[in-house]
Design a protein around this nucleic acid. Structure first.
Lengths: 119, 119
DNA sequence: GTCAATAGGGATAAATTTGTCCCTATCTGA
DNA sequence: TCAGATAGGGACAAATTTATCCCTATTGAC
């Protein structure tokens, strides 16, 4: 496990949300769990760009921040279901709005992003 | 300048917004510019936790993604004013909602974050 | 009998982000 | 005359995040 060397600043709402949502795949994980993809393997298939490892790490962080919970079924092969907690659920409208903004400006953003990479 | 070695995936709205908003201080920068703190030195004072250098870098990225623009006054000592573009302005309600969510859950989040650091 | 699927952790490497320090230049005020 | 404010970039170091690879264990399908 990585141990952080500097403490986070927690001054305002944006700092706080930064701590719990700042992770490349976290919003997607919450969104897909909300959409009903609750097993780790399903989530991995929904997010092929991310390594299995990182999804596990980020799910664990989401769990430690109580945005998601999980049910471990004592079966073999193992089965786990993630679900949104109330706190996690309350983020869904915001994540929805963010995704919608991205979709609305899709063409323009895509162009700008590509231009900013290729000078 | 850092040159990225892997290309971003731009599949959905969340990917796109990730590219333009994923940066530790970007939402704060947009928010403070929106609140009227438009000069670089003012922004640096509003965000003391960030180094001058990084704020410059992130402002430049925001500019290249056309979320902010700037006016350079040809005076000495130099003077620059940043402003939100229409695109940047359209993010303000979302950033507001995010900050509000953080503020609403302040105590709970603060506790959870600290607990997740100190086991 | 071997392989894929299942969930997830450890060790380590690579990529990326953030921070530190120094340098440009000019004017104002002590 | 020297420090400080102003805006910002280069070189480099440190912190952090993400990826790669390997290992645990069991069941069912081929």
């Amino acid at each position: 496990m990585y141990e952080r060397k500097t403490l986070p600043e927690l001054n305002c709402g944006l700092d706080l949300i930064g701590e719990v949502l700042y992770g490349k795949w976290k919003m997607r994980l919450l969104w897909f769990i909300h959409e009903g993809f609750q097993r780790p393997s399903e989530l991995q298939r929904k997010i092929p760009g991310a390594s299995r490892r990182v999804l596990n790490v980020q799910l664990k962080e989401l769990e430690s921040h109580e945005l998601v919970g999980k049910v471990i079924y004592p079966v073999v092969p193992p089965k786990v279901d993630y679900y949104l907690t109330d706190l996690g659920q309350s983020l869904i409208p915001i994540i929805g709005a963010i995704g919608q903004w991205g979709d609305q400006h899709d063409q323009r953003l895509r162009t700008l992003i590509l231009k900013s990479i290729h000078p």
